[in-house]
Amino acid sequence: MMGRIETAFAAAASKPAFIGFTVAGDPDTATCIRIARALIAGGTDILELGVPFSDPVADGPTIQKADERALAAGTTPDTVFEIAREIRKVSGVPIVFLTYYNIVYRRGIKRFYREAHDAGVDGILIADMPVEESEEVCAVAARCGIDPIFLITQTTTDDRIKKIAAKAHGYLYLVAVLGVTGVRDQVSEGAIDLLHRVRKHTKLPLALGFGISTPAHARTCARAGADGVIVGSAIVEIVERNLSDHDTMVLELQDYVQSMKRV
């Protein structure tokens, strides 16, 4: 049986899947659920939820501020599972958690993955877990039916790409920039080179993220043969800009995703 993530890539077929990210609990639980619904209504193929962390070293200022807002609103892993359950009630869209190792480690790896599975989560990416340290997590993920998703960067060697491709399921998250998350002007040549380099080693879907925000970016990725584009900071910026008017926020989000899907 195909999992929800695999199905989503198959359904997107000739076009890259749109993978939309928002921070769970930003700015609060109820609004976050509205945000997720707006992203899905706009056509998001896979929903990524950031589990907020006090020290998100892979993220730029936009997402770090969102993490701070979510934590200030009292977001805990329990809240994040609750948000996933609420979305799952109304949608079959695949849900992927993005988090940092200490959040999972503190809760207990087995408990975290079991609870995630029960909440309807399909994949988990731990930003600060190198593949060399992933054995236990991957074993638990396999038992819980959750896809372990890994980051690959432009400095990742071919040897490590092979190691990562052997452990990963669902898709590979290719980091399009040298650096942290955040909106950039264009998709770098390095990102396209990376896409072609990784393609040689795996049949897994390849999604480009970090610095991707406009339809033009998405077109560049599509032409280069990406199976998915991941947008985080651009979505979080819309949230941030409309904190005082949630109705406008969700309308803008839905329009934005639609514009990204029209490529």
Partner: peptide, 13 residues
Amino acid sequence: INEALRDWVANVR
């Protein structure tokens, strides 16, 4: 340290 790590990943070469 967080900021230095972010700088490092952006300019690692």
